[in-house]
Design a protein around this nucleic acid. Structure first.
Lengths: 154, 154
DNA sequence: TATTGTTATACTCTATAACTATA
DNA sequence: TATAGTTATAGAGTATAACAATA
């Protein structure tokens, strides 16, 4: 067996290695904006469905409700997320982004775009398209939900 | 801007998403053998350079020496790694794999190969080769060391 | 009685620092 | 005095369970 056929040089290993690297680089970038990757995900989910409850976030994220409390707290304190008691069911909070968060989302978009360009810097435009296509095939085949990445928890 | 051009659908995001998935699946597989991914990495490093010290492992892994103590302990207790006091410098341990570990390494190889096939199941042979090539370009461009993936710690 | 969210508690992981043995 | 490894301690992160308010 040649060196290049060992599993350590295969696509799955490279995906895990590069994926970890990409996630770390992204964490550094959003860290400059004062956010963790998990917080970015939370802001995205609230932006996509304003008014949703903490319970629904917990379900989608696969974490326990008390965890969401702990994750929303700092976003609330820093004025990015607003908890509004639901008038229909006063047990619920309706979560909304503040105007301050709206401005931040623009910067996050720029950050994510720069990150994409950075990770793909070694590829020309055509290679980048081909890589993206192949990755989409793999993601679909593995049953991954577009736009959602659960981190390394399982 | 079309949906497909948002960073969430770009190669970097897909790499992080699929990478996390691949790492989790790998963790499940090696978990069936009673090992964590970190332990697999440790066994590999000792197999590659028998007799190396805990200190050198700590340096390569970018962790603190006390961490290596904690990681080697269960491998020692389960009879996979042997600590031999160095005769040249009795402060050092020389780490070696036991025969029991040797047999396990064979199973690990099979596990890693099955994992590769699983992750790439959505691709035909040619696509798989192309993906691997593109990933190697990205890995090299990002300065990643072949065969070493540091996990998500940074 | 069931549900949303919070708080209190415990467990896990990891790093820092003090310590032992050796050089 | 410096180095290899261990142990003790503390901090972050996360889950479980008990709790308050509402339905």
């Amino acid at each position: 067996m040649t060196e290049s056929r060992k599993p350590l040089n295969g696509a799955a290993f490279l995906l895990a290695q590069i994926g970890a690297h990409a996630a770390n680089r992204f964490a550094e970038r959003v860290g400059d904006l004062g956010l963790s990757p998990a917080e970015v995900g939370l802001l995205r989910m609230i932006a996509a469905q304003p008014g949703r409850s903490q319970r629904s976030l917990a379900a989608d994220l696969g974490v326990v409700p008390s965890r969401v409390t702990a994750m929303i707290d700092p976003l609330d304190r820093s004025g990015l997320v607003e908890r509004r008691r639901s008038t229909e069911d006063r047990r619920n909070y309706e979560l909304h982004l503040t105007p301050k968060a709206g401005a931040l989302m623009g910067r996050l978009f720029e950050t994510a775009t720069a990150h994409e360009d950075d990770i793909c810097a070694g590829l020309d435009a055509e290679q980048r398209v081909r890589l993206t296509e192949l990755l989409r095939v793999v993601a679909a085949n593995q049953g991954l939900t577009p736009g959602v990445h659960p981190g390394y928890r399982g």
